[in-house]
């Protein structure tokens, strides 16, 4: 089996016209960064897909390549130093990597939008939020300044910012963290895109506000029937909102599965380690489990399975052979030589 066929099992039916045909398909994507110290292979053959109305959670530690993959989809990687030597990013069946710069720009914001982690630094500090929201309509739809402002107020209402009309002229620093993230969401939502990529949207927020923002995002996704890629390292956030999960490690997907099954019975030792390291109330007082070691330096990824130095199950084969993504069940895959043992262990 080729890699593509294996992921096809994970994604929805293959015929483009079929119901729930994938909105976005990432195929065998590779991203490298050419730095002074050498070539950093940040993404090594990632495959995933999202359909309309579906939420894919991409889980992984810092440096796992989850954000880089998202930036490649958005087309906002700095190239150079980044390079995409291989792969396809199909949006509604069309490879975006083959589009012209101008075609790509028209997709950004209008068809695929992105929400960033830190709303304070991601919003322009010297422009009012009304201006920054209205800009979407002025640039993509040619609306007048006045109409764009009216639309901006509408959007702020939509994301439940109190007294939107009075606050449209305020600047980002005048809002609270949660409100700022709502503005980021409103901005992403402005042109009713087909797909939203949220890169750690709640990481910078208080726990109580996190839940509100996630609920809002989920609610709006249902309303507009958008695809959502939720990038996070927080397993708690994922459980409630995601349909399926892709776990990334050192630039590869090590496991993908529908959310319930992954939580119930992980098929990769890394996923198992992640789940075991969640603090639980019934284990109060005991030492918290942690995966030993550190994520690999991407300049010197260990040979074989990149996870082998940290893996409790590692055998000799893990140090020599890179495990392919094996089909565990329909819509499930695991890149582990011992996925069967993991699953039943």
């Amino acid at each position: 089996m080729t890699t593509t066929e294996k992921t096809a099992a994970v994604s929805a039916p293959r015929t483009p016209e079929a119901a729930g045909s994938p909105l976005l398909q990432v195929r065998d994507l590779h991203v490298e960064f050419h730095t002074r110290d050498g070539v950093v292979k940040a993404v090594n053959g990632v495959n995933y897909s999202v359909s309309a109305g579906e939420t894919l959670a991409v889980l992984g530690e810092s440096g796992s390549g989850k954000s880089v993959t998202a930036q490649a989809i958005m087309g906002i990687l700095d190239m150079p130093p980044a390079k995409i030597p291989q792969g396809e990013i199909l949006f509604r069946g069309e490879d975006m990597l083959k589009m012209t710069v101008e075609q790509r720009r028209r997709v950004r914001g209008a068809k695929i939008a992105m929400i960033f982690q830190d709303a304070l630094s991601s919003l322009n500090p010297v422009l009012s939020v009304g201006y920054q929201l209205g800009e979407m309509f002025r640039v993509h739809q040619g609306l007048s300044k006045k109409d764009a402002k009216a639309k901006a107020i509408e959007l702020m209402d939509k994301v439940k910012i109190p007294a939107a009309k009075n606050r449209v002229g305020d600047y980002p620093h005048q809002f609270s963290g949660g409100m700022r993230q709502r503005i980021m969401i409103a901005m992403a939502l402005a042109l009713e895109p087909d797909l939203i990529i949220a890169d750690e949207p709640t990481t910078a927020l208080d726990v109580t506000v996190q839940a509100q923002v996630m609920d809002l995002l989920a609610e709006l996704q249902r309303e507009y029937h958008m695809g959502l890629i939720l990038i996070t390292h927080d397993l708690g956030v994922v459980a409630d909102v995601a349909d399926k999960i892709a776990v990334m490690y050192a630039g590869r997907i090590v496991e993908n599965a529908p959310v319930r099954e992954l939580y119930k019975n992980p098929a990769h030792p890394y996923t198992r380690g992640l789940l075991d390291s969640i603090p639980r109330l019934d284990q109060k007082g005991q030492e918290l489990y942690a995966i030993k070691g550190l994520p690999p330096n991407l300049l010197h990824v260990p040979s074989g399975c990149a996870f082998n130095p940290r893996c409790p199950m590692a055998q000799d084969v893990c140090r020599t052979d890179v495990p392919a993504l094996a089909k565990v069940a329909d819509g499930r895959g695991s890149a582990c030589h011992f996925w069967k043992e993991t699953l039943h262990g």
Binding site: I76, N124, L127, M187
Partner: peptide, 23 residues
């Protein structure tokens, strides 16, 4: 970060530099 946002919003280069960067 806000320049990355401007890029992700699909703003043309002229606008990203003339409005967002300049100010």
């Amino acid at each position: 970060d806000y320049m990355r946002t401007a890029l992700a919003k699909g703003l043309p280069t002229r606008r990203r530099i003339g409005v967002h960067l300049m100010r």
